[in-house]
Amino acid sequence: MHKHTASRHLSSRIMQICICFILAVVSFLLGYGIYYATKVEQFVSVSTNQQVQVTPSVATLPNQQNILLLGSDNDQKFTGNPLTQTMLVVHIDYQKKEVDMFSIPRDLWVKMPGSDTYAKIDQASEYQGIPSAVRVVEDTFGIPIDHYGWVGLYGFIKSIDAVGGVNLDITHPILDNSYPTDINNPNPYGYQRLDIEPGLQHLNGEQALQYVRSRHEDLLGDFGRTERQRQLLNSLKQTIFSSPASIFDIPSIFDALKGQIKTNVTPTLGLQLGYFYIANRNTLIQKEFALLPPKYSKDGTSTDGQSIVIADPGATADLVGSIFGNDAAKTTFKSLSSESDIETQ
């Protein structure tokens, strides 16, 4: 009898320990989760303040999304709505498990939204900020933009530093004698010299910015710069999704980007995209496209003397159709016709 009571007491004690252990683990995870949730909440509250309405994605096929990535030189000497010197549409086809990146040259000569005037495509954002940049891409290429993400110079540096830098293969030496000193510099109108050595390197945020921003001495000019930007995006994508441990970087990335980016990509969509990439990364089809000369574009000069890029309407329509679907291409290039007053080179 005495033995039976002792046994029951032991069982009860074990049960109590188990409950305490489970309680402790759940509480620990809860605390862990609260920290992450706080960071996400802080980030979202900042982003949504700056959210803009994009055109409903009427032509978007089920299981496809277009995300417009924008980058601006919003340096110290800048006031007003910045130009969007980097414009890149990421087309995700969840059914085909394909991600395409379509780079738009900043000097592309197009019709401005809601106007009869022509200008470089990166100037659209000067009118009404991001909504104008979104609209000019939709109007020019006849594609719906479902989501957008904008980052400035400081946000770019911080986001690279937040993930510990990126490994990049510098595919050719870069010498630039007139790189602007407009980041954390008492003279934002000055210039410095750059010498970026070729080969595999690990770059921090400021070095990565120099690599993707320099364009004065690149034989391919802005196309060369666009190529480097795509290369960096690929490396950044690999960095973020390279290991499960990188999940620990997410709060610090949110911290770093607070106030530095504008986007209507919700954290839920961000997680869905991350999951889609990680789940399919070994089989994912990834393609990159650009309006490279001579097939898709050529250099020209506007009547007011600006160096511009003129797209070939036929070749560009075919390219856009192959990326986004032929329905999109049919409505394309009203803005790229030869109506504007330009000289070609």
Binding site: F21, L23, G31, Y32, A162, G164, F248, P251
Partner: peptide, 27 residues
């Protein structure tokens, strides 16, 4: 006292560990 030991303390501990991991993950 048991509730305090097995729930409140791990809760703070979890928050602290997450914050610390984040800090350390900034290479």
């Amino acid at each position: 006292r048991l509730l305090l030991i097995y729930s409140i303390i791990p809760l703070f501990l979890g928050y602290f560990v997450a914050a610390n991991l984040t800090k350390n993950s900034q290479h």
